[in-house]
Design a protein around this nucleic acid. Structure first.
Length: 845
RNA sequence: GCGGGCGUGAUGGAAUGGUAGACAUAUCAGACUUAAAAUCUGAAGGCCGAAUGGCCGUGUGGGUUCGAGUCCCACCGCCCGCACCA
């Protein structure tokens, strides 16, 4: 008897697939195409279990689709620009380019043993000049269509990475990568006009039926549509009115002050002749250097001395304050305060002694409140009658809309739809990114580089000994001639946000060597991505940007109109987690230990470790298992099998040594079964052939369903169960052989190497990867006898064995004849008998 | 604060409104072995019982239904996303 040797068979079959060029995708019309894509990795240098899980899921889909007659595209590339390469260059010397390409080579080497069905001929890295040159071409086309523009803006500045961050990249006031508190700076930057697409990006979410509802909802919230109204408040001194934005004009009656942003033009204007105000504005600016501080900062304000008239009751005058809490870049930078119905406004009003006025009265509340009366705040949600608009009850968005209409009808304001989504700032003051292909000319201003001069390549001779952007201080790289007038000019030294790189790579895979960003015929054929798989952490940024890019690429003629939603189906998989093992050093600080150094809760020297519940694998906590070690210990099939088993794919899966061990044991068992069946005499007759084959067909049905619905864990459980049946089966050789070959096929998306080997051992024709997916025989799915539970008043009391086609009346008769029912009825008639064919009988007494 | 999700054995989890706990881990027992590992066989939600069996059981409390882990309402707990957004 031979032993299951993963190392041997995995290398062998990978070579066989390579030789046959099985995974190379070619454009043919004789089969339906299927494009499966996993979010491409950042080349950090090591693959981790998260990668293994992600790519294994994609591989299961890809291989299943191949077996079901699809022309599959399953590519892989590298999201290769970004800070870590520069950080490495700063920390250990060397060049980001060398570091990155070395890492790519390493990771490719670690990935290939997984036996993924990837078309490596399409591989590229975003830092290849062939790729980013096409990205520059896209940029120029976007520029021409007004999809990208330059403006002066207050931006998020990461003082550690020394670069600008998009709003989306600021999390809790900190840089998403560096974790440094983000400052606000005013700079001239490039922006994608994603905000023009707010409504479309929002509306189209409805069509993304095969996206997780959660992701759609997150995008919806991020786009943040709100309907409100802009209302001019006329100044008592005759100056330009102060226009406020509100989504709750129904609270207008409770308005008791106006607050404008320190960055509001009026604030700036007034500050010129008001030293106190100038000081206040300067102070808020200083205070507001970090977003985090802003969130916690006390609400502060300063009275400008200006007053405005209430739009509905002009006799009521409201003071205008400058408030540090008013954002200039949302709405109009000016709001009216309604302290009676807003906690923040109330805090502000109390602090500065401003009025608190009730805006509504409760139904049934007989006492009408005077305009300027101070009333207690009603905290409960109220159904209220609006005082100034004769529009009845205002309880919902419809009521608010009616209020807006009322204001518009009286010419007191203009209804406005606003979005939270801002334009996407893409300029980064970094070296290791795609250069923005424009030139600054003293005479012509900002001039796009000519397409024939693309790619604008990054210079290799740069150093990272001082912080900042090496392109800025490069002696010659900046020098160029103006594409327009030919005079000496300077290149832009900012590079693009790396999210740009990942916003269109899926399209590039359809024609990775094209001389243009895409080739329409290829894009039309392969797009959209039929199944996209990746982490939930990209629910907003990457996926929203990609959706914008697909639209922009359509407008610029790089994608067909059918591809503006690039991902037909999205699946967000959970993480791979592991327990954390820690001890304490002399000062009580935690010291972490690698799982491989811990046995039975103890270190080699016998020290007991503290076990902290499972968390995302992270190097700093040392709760990592290196896929390379797992593959060399057990083989890729074991790793693949285990990351798919146990937990539903969308949930986290905990890596445990015993689980990995169990996966390996199971594969060995299947291998041994194959051996056992191979050793049987071909003519051997046995017992229970039909039972085995029935079970086999049910397994085909269940596993097929499982694979199609991302129920990989359930599919695997079913395969375990069938293996158990097969190993105990006394069936004859022919039936057992059929069973093991089908088992191998059903396992092949998950354990392709083992499956190939079994197939070959059993004399299967060709490669299993080319074999069509087994079909469940309907006739074999029906048992000759089924067991029906009998309930009495909803509690299970007995069961009967009946033929599956027995009619309901007969089933009822049989059920009523069982001892338990006869006894319970005690001669009486049942009130009701419910027969659910094939499932259950319930006798109601 | 707003929005969303989830609560099932010791553990991961399974279950189109129809026998709750499939499958796996850990555990226990047995076989094989001088022994261990490996392998194989079996037990196992809780309580009562020698047993046939009975009662209870999917966070808590109600409801709908012949029948609820699943649907509805309220509450408790945990997780995630968003947020000086007017």
């Amino acid at each position: 008897m031979s032993r299951y040797s993963a190392a041997e068979i995995e290398a062998k079959w990978q070579e066989a697939w390579d030789r046959a060029g099985i995974f190379r995708a070619t454009h043919t019309d004789d089969k339906p195409k299927y494009y499966v894509l996993e979010m491409f990795p950042y080349p950090s240098g090591r693959i981790h279990m998260g990668h293994v899980r992600n790519y294994t899921m994609g591989d299961v889909i890809a291989r299943y689709k191949m077996a079901t007659g699809h022309n599959v595209l399953h590519p892989m590339g590298w999201d290769a620009f970004g800070m870590p390469a520069e950080n490495a260059a700063m920390a250990i010397g060397g060049h980001p380019k060398t570091w990155t390409y070395d890492n790519i080579a390493d990771m490719r080497g670690q990935m290939k043993p997984l036996g993924l069905s990837i078309d490596w001929s399409r591989e590229f890295a975003t830092c290849d000049p062939e790729y980013y040159g096409q990205q520059q071409a896209l940029f120029l086309d976007f520029l021409e269509k007004g999809l990208v523009y330059r403006k002066n803006a207050v931006v998020n500045w990461d003082p550690v990475d020394m670069t600008v961050l998009a709003n989306e990249q600021v999390i809790d006031g900190k840089g998403w990568r560096s974790g440094a508190e983000v400052e606000r700076r005013e700079l001239t930057q490039w922006f994608f006009k994603i905000s023009d697409f707010s409504e479309e990006l929002l509306e189209a979410l409805d069509g993304l039926d095969n996206w997780p509802a959660k992701v759609r909802l997150m995008q919806e919230n991020w786009i943040g549509k709100s309907r409100g109204i802009e209302i001019p408040f006329h100044r008592t001194d005759g100056g330009d009115p102060v226009v406020c934005y509100s989504t709750r004009p129904d609270t207008m009656r409770g308005a008791s002050f106006i607050a404008i942003s320190p960055e509001h033009p009026l604030s700036r204007e007034l500050a010129e002749n008001n030293a106190d105000l100038a000081a206040f504005i300067a102070e808020t600016r200083k205070m507001d250097t970090t977003e985090a501080a802003m969130e916690k900062a006390e609400k502060k304000g300063l009275d400008t001395g200006i007053t405005v008239k209430h739009p509905v009751w002009p006799e009521v005058e409201l003071p205008v304050w400058v408030g540090n809490f008013v954002l200039m870049d949302y709405g109009t930078g000016a709001v009216f305060g309604c302290p009676a119905h807003d906690q923040r406004d109330l805090d502000f009003a109390r602090k500065y002694g401003l009025d608190v006025r009730n805006a509504f009265y409760m139904p049934g509340d007989e006492t009408e409140v005077e305009n300027d009366a101070l009333v207690p705040v009603k905290s409960e949600k109220v159904t209220y009658i609006d005082h100034f608009a004769d529009i009845g009850e205002v309880t919902s968005q419809e009521g608010i809309d009616a209020t807006i209409d009322w204001f518009e009808a009286k010419d007191l304001g203009t209804g406005q739809v606003k979005y939270r989504l801002r334009d996407w700032g893409l300029s980064r003051q970094r070296y290791w990114g795609c250069p923005i292909p424009v030139v600054h000319c003293d005479d012509c201003g900002v001039v796009p580089e000519k397409k024939e001069n693309l790619p604008v390549e990054l210079p290799d001779d740069v150093t990272f000994d001082i912080p900042g952007n090496p392109l800025d201080r490069h002696p010659t790289w900046r020098d160029c001639s103006c594409p327009k007038c030919g005079k000496p000019a300077k290149r832009e030294t900012d590079t693009m946000d790396t999210f740009v790189d990942s916003s269109w790579y899926f399209a590039r895979f359809t024609a990775p060597r094209a001389e243009t960003p895409t080739e329409m015929a290829e894009a039309k054929y392969w797009m959209n991505v039929d199944q996209y798989i990746g982490g939930i952490e990209h629910a907003i940024l990457h996926l929203l940007y990609s959706r914008f890019f697909a639209r922009a690429m359509h407008i610029t003629g790089h994608l067909p109109s059918t591809a503006i939603e690039p991902f037909d189906a999205l699946f967000t998989q959970g993480m791979v987690t592991h327990e954390i093992y820690q001890t304490r050093d002399g000062n009580g600080r935690p010291v972490y230990h690698l799982p491989e150094d811990v046995t039975d809760g103890k270190l080699v020297d016998g020290t007991e470790v503290e076990i902290i519940p499972s968390a995302k694998m992270s190097k700093s906590k040392k709760n990592v298992v290196d896929p390379v070690n797992i593959i060399s210990a057990y083989g890729a099939d074991t790793a693949r099998w285990f990351v798919l088993s146990d937990s539903p794919p969308e949930r986290d899966v905990e890596w445990t040594a015993s689980g990995a061990e169990a996966a390996f044991k199971h594969l060995s068992r299947v291998w041994n079964l194959c051996d056992r069946i191979g050793a049987m005499d071909a003519g051997t007759k046995g017992e229970g052939d039909e039972d085995l084959l029935r079970e086999m067909h049910k397994t085909i049905r269940d596993v097929t369903l499982g694979v199609e619905s991302f129920g990989f864990n359930a599919a695997i459980a079913r395969l375990y169960a069938f293996t158990n049946v097969l190993s105990k089966s006394k069936a004859g050789h022919a039936a057992q052989k059929q069973a093991i070959m089908t088992l191998a096929q059903l396992m092949s998306p998950m354990t392709p190497h083992l499956s190939e080997d079994i197939w070959a051992h059993q004399g299967g024709e060709g490669l299993i990867v080319n074999a069509p997916w087994p079909q469940a025989d309907e006739a074999m799915l029906v048992d000759q006898s089924i067991t029906l539970p009998i309930q009495i008043n909803g509690k299970r009391r007995a069961e009967i064995a009946v033929p599956p086609d027995m009619d309901e009346a007969e089933v009822e008769k049989t059920a009523l004849a069982t001892d338990a029912v006869v006894k319970a009825l005690d001669g009486a008639q049942p009130k009701k008998v419910i027969v659910v064919p094939g499932r259950i009988v319930n006798v109601v007494i």
